[in-house]
């Protein structure tokens, strides 16, 4: 409105024109005011706010708990790669000195990342220790175990490991190369299944969170319809109108995330007794992993983001209806 500019100068500052810095300050001021205001609105109805947050928390606990269980069972990728090793059993006649040379030859192979020699004596000691059969083995006339080299392949994909096994078997002095592929692949498939189920659940329950927040915010928008109409009439922009609702959504998400962290911790404590007893009966030590600081931060960030997104969808849909055409 350029002609209005003359008017403005005639009558002095008519409208408030903020500098760029002033605009940022007022933007920040509105964000602060709205984040506080929306938090106060949530606290004004503590029970219904808590119920909404609890619904969000329950939707988050299942996928997060499953992820933790997978993590605990070492079914996540990094752990699997580590266990993809080959064992090259050397011929019976090979003595320790020659075994060292063979190990060097194996480690020089380009597909090999790492080797570890287990001499016949070491193998025997390990065997005795793991089985607790010291007495029975001690009665054997000699050491029946061959020396072996544990090989960590550089590339852990099944095909290349299989190819590497063939190549290593051709090295003289190597009797046999074993790779426990059957269980490894079974484990891999199980892990993939677990991960996919977790992902699917996370997506489904994430949508659940969107719906819970969206519905709550829809009601809030409906309750403040008159206010929205008035501020729209006197020149409020859409971001201005949306802002308090987005903050409400984010608060709901954050609250739900905090409750979910609490539930996961409680659930972990509750299950840890039977889990470690069960593990002990197998002679293993296994503890349910805790969410930890990083995990909690990720969970809270996700839940806050989901709350914000749910609010955004709900508000945008309803603003379009309220907007006077």
């Amino acid at each position: 409105m350029s002609s209005q500019g003359q008017e403005r100068s005639r009558r002095g500052a008519r409208t408030h024109r903020a500098s760029a810095g002033g605009r940022w300050r007022s933007w920040g001021r509105h964000h602060r005011a709205m984040s506080l205001d929306s938090a106060q609105r949530l606290l004004r109805y503590p029970l219904s706010s808590l119920l909404t947050m609890l619904a969000i928390a329950i939707a988050l606990v299942l996928p997060a708990g499953l992820w933790l269980a997978l993590d605990g069972a070492r079914l996540l990728d990094a752990e699997l790669d580590e266990s993809a090793t080959l064992t090259a059993y050397l011929a019976d006649r090979v003595d320790d000195g020659e075994a060292g040379r063979i190990e060097e030859a194996l480690s020089a192979h380009e597909g090999v990342a790492e080797t570890r020699l287990i001499t016949a004596a070491e193998g025997m000691a390990e065997f005795q220790q793991s089985l607790g059969l010291e007495d029975a083995l001690a009665r054997l006339p000699g050491n029946p175990l061959p020396a072996s080299v544990v090989v960590t392949p550089a590339d852990t994909s099944p095909e290349s490991v299989r190819r590497l096994a063939g190549e290593l078997e051709a090295v003289s002095g190597v009797e046999e190369v074993r790779l426990d592929f059957a269980w490894l692949e079974r484990l891999r498939h199980l892990a993939e299944l677990g991960q996919r189920v977790t992902l699917a659940l996370a997506v489904l329950f994430g949508m659940g969170v969107l719906l819970v927040v969206g519905n709550t915010i829809r009601l809030a928008v409906e309750n403040r319809r008159q206010e929205i109409e008035v501020v729209t009439l006197i020149g409020a922009t859409h971001p201005f109108v949306r802002r308090p609702f987005l903050y409400s959504g984010a608060w709901y998400g954050l609250g739900g995330g905090i409750l979910a962290c609490g539930l996961l911790t409680l659930g972990g404590d509750w299950l840890s007794g039977p889990v470690s007893a069960l593990a002990a009966s197998y002679g293993a030590s296994f503890a349910l992993p805790a969410l930890g600081f990083g995990g909690s931060a990720i969970l809270l960030a996700c839940s806050t983001l989901l709350g914000w997104l749910g609010a955004w969808i709900a508000v945008s849909r309803h603003l379009a209806q309220i907007r006077p055409r």
Partner: peptide
């Protein structure tokens, strides 16, 4: 707006503009 004082009703357009 019936949930806020006279002062805040009148201040609304300025608040929307982000006036100091």
């Amino acid at each position: 707006l019936f949930d806020r004082s006279i002062y805040h009703n009148v201040a609304l357009p300025l608040e929307i503009q982000g006036m100091e």
